[in-house]
Design a protein around this nucleic acid. Structure first.
Lengths: 243, 243
DNA sequence: GTTGGCAATACCTCAGACATTTAAATCGCT
DNA sequence: AGCGATTTAAATGTCTGAGGTATTGCCAAC
């Protein structure tokens, strides 16, 4: 809010907000304060319309608003209705990914910003992963590592993405996963695999093997350093994409 | 009445998805592909209804969907209408903040996860800030630093939040700001200021001054280290909150 | 030249009806 | 009695048509 001093915040007459927005806000409040717990079933649309004293159309527009924020979920049918849906991390990440993609396409966010953020998150995530990975985690990571060389190079970038996703997931911190996933998703779309020569994928493969070994050994320092170097070496592949 | 009455068009494919969602998706596609550039004005609702072959209610629900994703913005009046609006990072952050709050309140996400993520992001953000801060940035940071000691300790936690927010903003990377902001917002709500004794705030204040000096000196190593130590020292204040 | 009102535009809201979907309850046959 | 097919009920999805309201621009009157 740096320019709020210039724009008159106090002068602006607080117009009465649209009814559908008021309804959405009230329902949102009830959800956030726990008055409506996750999984709870809201009254049907007709009843809500009666309770709020508005028409059903208005209620429906309010529900669309909440649904798009993953706050509620509506299903049809006899046992259908509108339910408070505690958003799982996955859907939030999906939503965030879409928004991030928009920001990159539109303005104010560059591929460079994404790379920088990833360069901050993943090396330290790798450090955490190295100190926390159990047998199952290592197996999953090995799966994402080994298949890189087994598959055709054209699909390498998919597996490459899997490796990074798996690595972050091992930290056990859903928030880190939540942040890294959209970043990688956007970056993946910004990488044209055709232009990447074969030997680069071989190097990527080798890097992954090294990182996996470091994580398996519980060598946090090495895991962090290798991941950072790995991401640095990947940087040129994305910077080409500025068209 | 048989169901054949609805096949008046013949070409109409069977609706597998809700109409308002289809309309929203098509409009979203047109926006993302650049067919509708930012600032462009969409046809009015009646015209959109005619173009898509649906009713105005359906169009409106679709527009609510897009509006909640900050893809379009509608105003009333003669020159009003629905306009394509490229989403700014701030509104996205707001949206993400709400979702994050839900995740913490609901399940799968603990205060520990938030602290860990912050401990990853902010020290390296401080490092970047130290290498990029210009005069205006330093002034802003100084403002968030100096006022800590000037104000009553009861409001210290607000300024404390401002300091961290400003620090991340200096990096110039909106994505970092986008991620740190919701985290700090949720953590702020998890901190009971009443239980924090005065001397702790004094220490916080001193830490901020140190960090500010490091950033002003362009000493990236010191900025990173001091920020990390600062966040570590803050950790116990939050861990009490597990009730 | 400024001010006041009038008209046009487009979103906002309402009310009701019918269609569609889904699951449970019921009926009918084996 | 058991089990599948049909009916029924509940809820959302969609359509239609009609005002209501906010905002702007123009034009006439002072």
């Amino acid at each position: 809010m740096s320019e709020t001093a210039g724009t008159q915040a106090g002068l602006r007459v607080r117009r009465v907000q649209a009814a559908y927005r008021q309804v959405a806000d009230q329902l949102k409040d009830q959800i956030l304060t726990g008055e409506l717990t996750a999984g709870a079933r809201l009254p049907n649309e007709a009843e809500l319309a009666r309770l709020f004293g508005v028409s059903r159309s208005t209620v429906r527009e309010a529900l669309r608003l909440l649904a798009s924020q993953h706050l509620v979920d509506t299903t049809r049918g006899a046992t259908g209705g509108t339910f408070v849906s505690s958003p799982d991390a996955l859907s939030v990440a999906e939503n965030l990914g879409g928004a991030l993609g928009l920001l990159v396409n539109a303005q104010g966010m560059t591929v460079e910003n994404l790379l920088e953020a990833r360069l901050i998150l993943e090396p330290l995530a790798a450090r955490l992963a190295a100190s926390r990975a159990d047998a199952a985690d290592l197996e999953a990571l090995a799966g994402a590592t080994a298949s890189t060389s087994a598959l055709a190079p054209s699909s390498g970038f998919v597996v490459h993405w899997d490796f990074h996703t798996t690595l972050v997931a091992i930290t056990g911190n859903p928030l880190l996963h939540l942040m890294c996933r959209p970043i990688n998703a956007v970056l993946r779309g910004r990488l044209h695999r055709d232009r990447i020569p074969r030997d680069v994928w071989d190097q990527v493969d080798a890097d992954h093997v090294d990182i996996h070994r470091a994580v398996a050994d519980g060598d946090a320092d090495a895991a962090e350093r290798l991941t950072r170097e790995h991401l640095h070496s990947l940087r040129p592949l994305y910077e080409k994409m500025e068209d």
